[in-house]
Each structure stands twice: as structure tokens, then as C-alpha cells.
């Protein structure tokens, strides 16, 4: 399978008045044709900024280092007019906030046809017909009427459908969906996810799904990449990640998902502590301050992605999650030298 997107050692940094913030710290991965990749991480893990950088949509104070290639063409540092030939046409993006993502003073039809005008040279009735087809494809009721409506006349779910339809207008090879269901009601979320699963079959576009919701990933994705502190903690096949997580962070994420089978009186597990300050990332593992298996090596040395099981990679010094307590290096770090958050957990 050929790669649609090849990312190598990509870094994103923001200049702020308090110093430089490293949002993404060197990630490498491929997205292959008609593949669905899930990027999972909590707020501030750099998952959104990673793809903002790929799309050239970073805020003005941000800069991108490394490489991101679409079909062999370097996107990082590409002049905007050339980039505009690719984004919206070959690579499309859906954003999380459907309520504010559409221009309030333009009719839905206009916002859709302008994409076709720009990339396909289509105009007038042709573009309108195509827009109507796409609205029908995303199952918007009374699609013909919607073309003449303004965004505020549509519900949140419908607006997100419009966003998806708009992204698919030019039959992109890669669709990046940045938390497409976050701002929606649970029932609408389910509908949108169902729609995305259907569309994935119909369009054959490769999909990158950025989310903090593991459930979303499980239903849609082939591959999963777990992000933390601007790095990949664990990558692999979706089944491997869910059934045999190899990284303490992935395991923590999975444990903090509510389950219907669980007794309602038990407290939901939460990973202790806060995500790291991206301005002062620790020298070693970014997860060290919250990891219950932390040992001296984690503090000293940054773990690199290594194959844990066939096709599954983890950035962790632990031999295995199954017997972490037997790890001989673990005793090397005295309890009082540990971050306070972990100490509390241990003593509890």
C-alpha cells in the first residue's frame, strides 16, 4: 500500500511571551491509502497541533520542523498558494467545533460551491448539484432547502454533517477529522460516527481521526497512535492496543473509560496528576511524573518507540506491563524522590 501522508520527525513549537512551547516533539508515521488511523491523547497532548502543522494552519506564533509529505511532496514550508492547491482538494479537514466552524453570514450552498469553484473550476448549477449530492450523501434531511439556509438555521449535528459534506466535495485522498463529535449530543455523536464509518467504505479516502475518546477509535480505526506530551507513547493495530496495551499510559487511558458492566458505586479510575507543562518537558519520559511504574531510567533517558510485539510499538523502558513490579531497576528510585502525585498513589 502506498502512503498518502508520510510524516518524519515532525516538531511544532510556539513562541510565547514566557518562552518556547514544544507542542509536538518529533513524531514519525505514515498514513496509507484508505486506511483509518486514530490519534488518541488528552487535551494538550499535541494531537491537534500535529495535523494543524500538516495543513499549514498553525497560529502565527507557531513553527513546524521536520517533514510531512503528501504523495512525496513536502508540505512543511510550502508556499501558501501551492498549499492551497492541496488542502481542501487532496487533503481535507473537519474541525471539532461545528457551531463556529461555518461562516455565519454565508449560505450553506455558497460555502460548499466555493470549494468546487476553487479546486475543480466548477461553477453555477454544476457546483450546486454536486453540493446537493454531498448533502444527500451525509443524509441531511431536505438537503435542497439547506443549500439556501444560513448555518444558524441548522442544528449542531446538521452543521457537522455539512462540514463533512464540504470536506468530501473534492473526493480527498486524506480526510483529517479533529474531534468531529466533541461538541455534539451523545445520540448525535453516535449518528455522526455511524455516518463516518459508512463514508469510509464509500469514499475510499484515508482517514485520520483525532480524538480523546477511545470508544470512537475502536469503532472506526485500523491503527491507533497514542500521544502524550507531544510524542507517540504507543502505536499499533487497534485490536492490539485495546486488548494488549503495552504502555502504562495507554493502560491508564483504557482503565479510565466508564463501563456499563461496572458497579455504579465504584469510583472511575483516573490517571493521577496533570499533563506535563510543554514549556518545561522533563528530560526523560514525558509520562514519568504520573506513571506508577516510574524508575530511575525513566527520569534519565527518553524512551524511544521500540517494537514490543509484532506491529506494536511502545515508548517505554519497562520490559513488560504484566510483571512491572519485578523490574529490577525500579527499586533504585527511593519513594521520597518520586513525584508527589505518585507517592500519594503508592501510599494510598
Amino acid at each position: 500500500m502506498a502512503a498518502v501522508l508520510e510524516v518524519r520527525d515532525l516538531q511544532v513549537r510556539f513562541a510565547t511571551p514566557d518562552g518556547e512551547v514544544s507542542a509536538v516533539n518529533g513524531v514519525s508515521f505514515d498514513v496509507n491509502e484508505s486506511e483509518c488511523v486514530g490519534i488518541v491523547g488528552e487535551s494538550g497532548s499535541g494531537k491537534s497541533q500535529l495535523f494543524m502543522a500538516v495543513m499549514g494552519l498553525l497560529a502565527k506564533n507557531g513553527r513546524t520542523l521536520g517533514s510531512a509529505k503528501y504523495r512525496g511532496t513536502e508540505l512543511v514550508g510550502m508556499p501558501v498558494d501551492k498549499l492551497n492547491k492541496i488542502r481542501g482538494d487532496k487533503i481535507a479537514m473537519i474541525f471539532q467545533d461545528s457551531m463556529t466552524g461555518l461562516t455565519p453570514h454565508l449560505r450553506i450552498g455558497r460555502q460548499m460551491t466555493e470549494v468546487l469553484e476553487e479546486h475543480k473550476g466548477m461553477g453555477g448549477a454544476d457546483a450546486r448539484a454536486r453540493a446537493l449530492d454531498m448533502l444527500n450523501l451525509v443524509r441531511i434531511p431536505e438537503a435542497a432547502r439547506r443549500l439556501n439556509q444560513y448555518p444558524h438555521e441548522l442544528s449542531g449535528g446538521m452543521r457537522q454533517r455539512v462540514m463533512i459534506a464540504m470536506a468530501l466535495l473534492c473526493e480527498p485522498e486524506l480526510l483529517i477529522a479533529d474531534e468531529p463529535t466533541t461538541a455534539l449530543d451523545v445520540t448525535v455523536q453516535a449518528q455522526i460516527l455511524e455516518l463516518m464509518a459508512d463514508l469510509k467504505r464509500v469514499t475510499k479516502a484515508a482517514v485520520v481521526l483525532i480524538t480523546h475518546d477511545l470508544g470512537t477509535v475502536a469503532g472506526l480505526c485500523d491503527k491507533v497512535q497514542v500521544m502524550y506530551g507531544g510524542r507517540f507513547m504507543e502505536t499499533g493495530d487497534v485490536r492490539q492496543i485495546f486488548y494488549k496495551p503495552q504502555h502504562p499510559y495507554t493502560k491508564g487511558l483504557l482503565s479510565s473509560m466508564p463501563r456499563l458492566t461496572e458497579d455504579r458505586r465504584t469510583t472511575l479510575y483516573a490517571i493521577p496528576g496533570q499533563p506535563p507543562n510543554l514549556q518545561r518537558l522533563p528530560a526523560g519520559c514525558p509520562f514519568q511524573e504520573r506513571c506508577e511504574f516510574v524508575h530511575q531510567r525513566c527520569v534519565d533517558e527518553l524512551p524511544l518507540l521500540q517494537e514490543a510485539r509484532p506491529g506494536q510499538f511502545k515508548a517505554c523502558h519497562l520490559e513488560s506491563l504484566e510483571h512491572p513490579v519485578d523490574d529490577p531497576t525500579r527499586a533504585a528510585i527511593p519513594a521520597e524522590a518520586m513525584p508527589p502525585v505518585i507517592r500519594d498513589v503508592r501510599t494510598a
Binding site: 499549514g56 488542502r87 467545533d97 461555518l102 466555493e114
Partner: peptide, 16 residues
């Protein structure tokens, strides 16, 4: 605002 970001993502030129 978010809708301007959307417009950039659609590949529209600055002038538009």
C-alpha cells in the same frame, strides 16, 4: 475565528 480557519483548510486564497 474558527470559520476563517475552516476557509483556510478549504484551500481558499487569502483574497477570497
Amino acid at each position: 475565528s474558527n470559520f476563517v480557519r475552516t476557509a483556510h483548510a478549504k484551500g481558499l486564497p487569502e483574497r477570497v
